[in-house]
Simulated scan of single mutants.
Amino acid sequence: MTGKHSLRDIEQAEKKPLWQRLGWLAMIWAGSVGALFIVASLMRMFMSAAGLSTP
């Protein structure tokens, strides 16, 4: 297998319901926002521990 999707695979994916495709999109978006929140919180915690804080 060359790693490319065949036309049949693409047609199969397009047959899935719209709510299911949008659900995956929403889950990926929520996961990325959550990961960004965790990284930002950790950075803020480390900066506060180093004595860098906002008034």
Rank of each mutant, 00 (worst) to 15 (best):
L22H: 06
K4C: 05
R44P: 01
G51P: 02
D9N: 11
F46I: 15
F46Y: 12
R8V: 11
Q12I: 00
T2L: 11
K16Y: 05
A40S: 13
A49I: 06
K16V: 00
L22Y: 05
A49T: 03
D9L: 09
S32F: 04
M27D: 04
M43W: 14
A13P: 00
L42M: 13
S32W: 13
Q12G: 00
A26V: 08
Q20L: 06
L25R: 14
R21F: 00
G31S: 05
L22I: 05
I38Q: 01
L18S: 09
L22E: 07
T54Q: 02
L7D: 05
K15V: 00
I28G: 06
R44S: 10
K16L: 11
W19N: 04
T54M: 12
M27C: 14
D9Y: 03
G3Q: 08
S41C: 07
S48T: 12
M45Y: 13
S41K: 14
Q20I: 09
K16R: 14
T2D: 02
L25W: 05
E11R: 08
G31E: 05
I28H: 05
A40M: 12
H5R: 01
K16W: 06
Q12W: 04
L7V: 10
M27H: 05
A30C: 14
I38S: 05
M47P: 01
P55L: 02
L18N: 08
I38K: 01
S48Q: 13
L18R: 12
I10D: 02
S48K: 15
G3Y: 04
S6C: 11
A49R: 14
K16C: 04
P17D: 03
W29L: 15
W29G: 07
D9P: 02
L52K: 12
T2M: 06
M47L: 15
F37E: 03
A40R: 14
W19M: 04
A40C: 10
A26G: 06
L18G: 03
E14C: 09
I38L: 12
M27V: 13
E11W: 05
Q12S: 04
E14L: 13
K4R: 10
Q20Y: 09
A26S: 09
M27Q: 08
G51S: 08
V33A: 10
E14Q: 11
P17V: 01
F46P: 03
L22W: 04
M47N: 07
I10W: 07
G34I: 02
A40H: 08
H5I: 00
W19T: 07
M47S: 14
A50E: 10
S32R: 09
G51V: 06
T2E: 04
F37Q: 03
M1Y: 03
L42S: 01
V33P: 01
R8P: 05
M43Y: 11
L7C: 09
S6M: 07
M43L: 15
S32T: 12
V39W: 04
H5D: 07
T54S: 15
I38H: 03
D9A: 14
L22K: 12
L42T: 08
